[in-house]
Design a protein around this nucleic acid. Structure first.
Length: 588
RNA sequence: GCGCCCGUAGCUCAAAGGAUAGAGUACUUGGCUUCGAACCAAGGGGUUGCAGGUUCGAGUCCUGCCGGGCGCACCA
């Protein structure tokens, strides 16, 4: 490992100068012109050795150069810069070897090998709309879980559906009023809106709905249960279609109905130990942990979301002996989860330290907060459709309006349709995954969905372009399979060594090598946006390089190497986009 | 009121205590007879909310203030 070699060389050099604790930090400088690796040890240890940082750096440099030569590493140059940083530049040979390593599994690591994770995300409620908040959760959840898997973890993916509760009673109340001939997702949405409105405005209706809710939990009314089952199935089928469209799948589906039953029992049994009765309800006093009190069973004796979460914890631990259980939700539930996790840990002490709440920001419209009350709620499906329409218009632009209409003009209507969906979903996913998950995403229909620059389509386009170049290379260079035949090492061996020495490694190679580290960091911090940021920088580098280099050229002896670089780029881009859950088109 | 989170370019966001705080967008220009122009190149744009402190070094850590978001008993 190159980092190990360099770090050890630094540590040895420090030791030789009499430094006792030789911790050596080796990082990539933010600025690529400052080299491939950098260490700040001269700044850190200057005080201890009573030297100026630059003076220490000079002394270290001498030792370092010797140590590195001994180890036959691929460092071409070591320099002192700035306040006393020591910068390392890797050689052409190093990159040539590294690029050869790029394959389908490039980016995977074993940091979390053996770790079993229960990973829950996407908690939509049957009878209600799958709105853009659920969409955001699903996109973040899917990307994060893929990243964790590439870090070696074994995952059990779960979704959790709120199939009982007041919201369902509201919908059923609405359905009884509407008496629709046929149930579909839009009817359910309207029924909920009707019930919700009545609940707020009409006291008699409110009481009806509360009674319905109770009957629902008790399963006491066969006719009601029939309507309920029908609506539940319609909702769940709709969710499945969306999951398929979004490319996310689950190993297990949990339901609040089952979690509620299990949770009620557990909470009731623990009254007096973990929970206590208060004002007719059963609560957990969070004040003992510096938190606040929450209701687990309401005064009707029904389980609240809290008790359901207790039941869910039980269902999960029975299902899978996990090392860690991660639940992804929006950050408005942060304090809720703090209290519930404490209560769950008291009930099941062996879960202590294993429960983790991963929270993200909310999806906001530029016009204001999404709200079902003001009617500004937007379903995931309608958002996808709206963006898809914009993409389709772009796809159907006449060739003359664009520099490259040819590939797309030849597309059938079906291909255009499929392409529009891949690009639209990619654009939406990108706009959410481009930033740290904790922050809110501002969604502006007019501006936010841009297909240029910092966007999903930019990455997809770069990939398609690279693939197109590779196709050309097959024809012109007479290569059957570019990836197999173009052997970077052989190409380099065939050239004069003096020539190699004059060729500087390009930014493209330097960035390509960093992909595995990026995946590792994204996994450690559970932040997929590191991958997004990296891919965007990489695509920019590739596009710029592309604009300045003729890649496929039979008369150019370095052409195969450039083709190999292009191939490596396309693989990294494909792998990175897969981790984000963004599809790659073949043409666009 | 209490708790948690957040204030970075006009806008949307990056930045592992490090070097000249970076991208995209918008604006102004230039570039398709060429491997795909959903692209590339160039330019201006900043007291990182304010005030102290810690550190060789602070957008990042600590304290106080200002501004915003979320949560705080029978919704999920």
């Amino acid at each position: 490992m190159i980092t190990k070699d360099i770090t050890e060389a630094i540590q040895q050099a420090l030791k030789d100068l009499g430094v006792r604790t030789s911790e050596a930090e080796l990082t990539h400088p933010a600025e690529l012109s400052h080299g491939d690796y950098s260490t700040n040890v001269a700044l850190i240890y200057a005080k201890e050795l009573k030297m100026k940082p630059k003076e220490l750096a000079e002394r270290l440099l001498q030792g370092l150069t010797l140590n590195l030569q001994k180890g036959q590493t691929f460092v071409s140059r070591v320099e002192i810069a700035g306040a006393g940083f020591i910068n390392f530049y890797l050689s052409k040979e190093f990159f040539a070897n590294a690029v050869r390593e790029v394959g389908d599994d490039f980016g995977k690591n074993k940091i979390r090998a053996g770790e079993k994770i229960f990973f829950e995300h996407t908690q939509p409620n049957p009878f209600k709309e799958f709105h853009i908040g659920h969409l955001m959760n699903n996109i973040i959840g899917e990307a994060t879980s893929r990243v964790l898997e590439w870090n070696g973890a074994k995952l059990m993916r779960a979704t959790y559906h709120g199939d009982v509760g007041l919201h369902v009673a509201k919908s059923l109340w609405g359905l009884r009023r509407m008496e629709p001939k046929m149930l579909d997702i839009s009817v359910l949405g309207r029924a909920y809106a009707m019930g919700n409105e009545a609940y707020e405005a009409d006291i008699a209706a409110k009481q009806d709905i509360i009674a319905l809710n109770k009957a629902l939990y008790a399963k006491s009314d066969p006719k009601l249960m029939k309507l309920y089952e029908e609506g539940r199935v319609v909702s769940l089928e709709h969710f499945e279609l969306l999951y398929k469209k979004l490319g996310s799948s689950f190993d297990i589906h949990f339901f609040e109905s089952e979690a509620g039953e299990v949770g009620s029992k557990l909470v009731r049994e623990a009254i007096g130990s973990v929970f206590e009765e208060s004002e007719g309800a059963v609560v957990y006093k969070g004040e003992q942990d510096g938190l606040h009190t929450r209701v687990f069973l309401n005064s009707e004796g029904l389980p609240t979301y809290e008790a359901k979460e207790v039941g869910l914890a039980q269902l999960k631990r029975k299902k899978f002996a996990y090392d860690r259980s991660i639940t992804v939700t929006a950050n408005e539930q942060n304090d809720f989860f703090k209290v519930v996790e404490k209560a769950v840990e008291k009930l099941f002490p062996e879960l202590k330290g294993k429960l983790q709440h991963l929270s993200h920001g909310v999806l906001k419209l530029s016009t204001g907060k999404m709200s079902s009350r003001t009617g500004t709620i937007i379903s995931a499906e309608s958002l996808i459709e709206q963006v898809k329409k914009l993409v389709k218009a772009k796809v159907e632009e006449p060739a003359s309006a664009q520099g490259s209409g040819l590939a797309r003009r030849e597309m059938s209507e079906k291909e255009k349709e499929e392409l529009s969906e891949i690009v639209a979903i990619g654009a939406i996913k990108y706009s959410i995954l481009r930033q740290a998950i904790g922050g809110d995403t501002i969604f502006d229909f007019e501006k936010s969905i841009s297909f240029e620059g910092d966007s999903g389509p930019y990455l997809q386009y770069s990939y398609v372009r690279a693939k197109s170049v590779l196709e050309k290379a097959k024809e012109v260079l007479g290569v059957a399979d570019v990836v197999d035949v173009v052997d970077v090492g052989n190409v380099l061996d065939a050239r004069h060594l003096t020539h190699i020495q004059h060729v500087q490694p390009t930014t493209l190679e330097r960035l390509l090598c960093r992909f595995p580290e990026v995946v590792e960091r994204a996994g450690k911090e559970m932040e997929p946006h590191y991958i997004t940021t990296y891919l965007t920088g990489l695509a920019g580098t590739f596009n710029s390089w592309y604009a300045h280099e003729k890649i496929v050229d039979a008369s150019d002896p370095t052409s195969p190497y450039k083709v190999a670089l292009t191939s490596a780029f396309s693989i990294v881009m494909k792998n990175g986009l897969w981790l984000l859950g963004i599809g790659v088109p073949t043409r666009m």
